[in-house]
Simulated assay, not measured.
Amino acid sequence: MLQTTYSSPLGQLILLANSSSLLGLWYSDQAHLGAKYALATIQHGSSPILQQTAQWLDAYFSGRKPAIDQLSLAPQATPFRLQVYHVLTTIPYGKTMTYQQIADRLTALNGHKTGSARAVGGAVGHNPIGIIIPCHRVVGTNGQLTGYAGGLERKRQLLALEHQ
């Protein structure tokens, strides 16, 4: 595993990858930084995956809308959380979904009640690959902005960037 930093318009990001996939992307000052990884023990460096991620972020922050499937992503999470992250990747640029809509989508996908809006919120809040797996596109009932591990101001800025 290797990590590197990326200077974004919204603050420094930490990128973490193994030899084949991106494992993490966090603001350096966010909640749940590093997830289960001991970042202090992981070597800094560069790799094709980290370079591809930086190029994706360059395109994103310049207002283009790069496809999520351009990157190999491997978030480490429970099966439920992985399902939530998959649904997040289907939310188009400039659109939002509520926690309840995601819970309803999971129920439809699985053919039975899979989780509550609160459980979805827990998964979204612990998303290890921020921005690319677009947890910032999840809003509360009636569209109000609610929790974001990187802070609500960053969430507002990301949503504004995507509406351009």
Rank of each mutant, 00 (worst) to 15 (best):
residue 152 L to M: 11
residue 119 A to N: 12
residue 117 A to I: 01
residue 129 I to K: 03
residue 91 I to A: 04
residue 154 R to T: 01
residue 132 I to R: 05
residue 2 L to D: 00
residue 115 G to T: 05
residue 128 P to H: 07
residue 119 A to D: 07
residue 72 S to M: 12
residue 38 A to G: 04
residue 9 P to R: 13
residue 62 S to D: 06
residue 37 Y to Q: 09
residue 155 K to L: 09
residue 89 T to I: 04
residue 35 A to V: 02
residue 6 Y to H: 10
residue 161 L to W: 09
residue 63 G to A: 05
residue 36 K to H: 10
residue 46 S to M: 10
residue 19 S to P: 06
residue 127 N to D: 06
residue 136 H to W: 02
residue 27 Y to F: 15
residue 34 G to M: 03
residue 5 T to Y: 07
residue 42 I to A: 10
residue 71 L to G: 11
residue 63 G to N: 01
residue 64 R to V: 02
residue 164 Q to C: 03
residue 83 Q to D: 13
residue 106 L to A: 12
residue 14 I to Y: 01
residue 162 E to I: 09
residue 110 N to Y: 03
residue 15 L to T: 03
residue 73 L to P: 09
residue 150 G to L: 04
residue 65 K to C: 05
residue 118 R to Y: 06
residue 147 G to V: 08
residue 40 A to T: 11
residue 137 R to G: 03
residue 68 I to R: 14
residue 53 T to P: 01
residue 134 P to I: 11
residue 94 G to N: 07
residue 155 K to P: 01
residue 141 T to G: 04
residue 31 A to R: 13
residue 125 G to C: 12
residue 23 L to W: 00
residue 87 V to E: 07
residue 82 L to V: 03
residue 8 S to T: 04
residue 138 V to G: 10
residue 116 S to H: 14
residue 104 D to N: 15
residue 75 P to L: 11
residue 159 L to F: 03
residue 128 P to E: 09
residue 99 Y to I: 01
residue 24 G to R: 01
residue 118 R to W: 00
residue 79 P to A: 14
residue 55 Q to D: 08
residue 99 Y to Q: 13
residue 57 L to I: 12
residue 155 K to W: 00
residue 84 V to L: 12
residue 77 A to M: 02
residue 148 Y to A: 05
residue 122 G to A: 13
residue 152 L to R: 13
residue 85 Y to T: 04
residue 106 L to H: 07
residue 22 L to Y: 02
residue 109 L to W: 06
residue 62 S to M: 07
residue 116 S to N: 06
residue 147 G to E: 10
residue 102 I to N: 06
residue 94 G to P: 10
residue 22 L to S: 02
residue 13 L to T: 07
residue 125 G to E: 11
residue 120 V to H: 09
residue 131 I to F: 09
residue 17 A to L: 05
residue 65 K to F: 04
residue 112 H to L: 06
residue 149 A to R: 08
residue 126 H to V: 10
residue 31 A to K: 13
residue 151 G to H: 04
residue 164 Q to F: 09
residue 108 A to M: 07
residue 40 A to E: 15
residue 30 Q to C: 15
residue 8 S to V: 08
residue 15 L to F: 08
residue 30 Q to T: 11
residue 89 T to L: 04
residue 46 S to C: 08
residue 142 N to Y: 14
residue 149 A to Y: 06
residue 11 G to T: 06
residue 36 K to R: 12
residue 29 D to C: 02
residue 63 G to I: 06
residue 65 K to R: 15
residue 53 T to K: 05
residue 115 G to F: 02
residue 88 L to R: 06
residue 98 T to S: 15
residue 153 E to M: 11
residue 128 P to Y: 07
residue 139 V to W: 05
residue 82 L to Y: 06
residue 39 L to I: 15
residue 23 L to T: 01
residue 145 L to S: 07
residue 76 Q to H: 10
residue 66 P to A: 09
residue 59 A to Q: 14
residue 23 L to H: 00
residue 24 G to N: 11
residue 107 T to G: 02
residue 53 T to Y: 05
residue 127 N to T: 12
residue 9 P to Q: 13
residue 114 T to Y: 05
residue 103 A to P: 00
residue 73 L to V: 10
residue 125 G to P: 04
residue 102 I to Y: 13
residue 133 I to N: 02
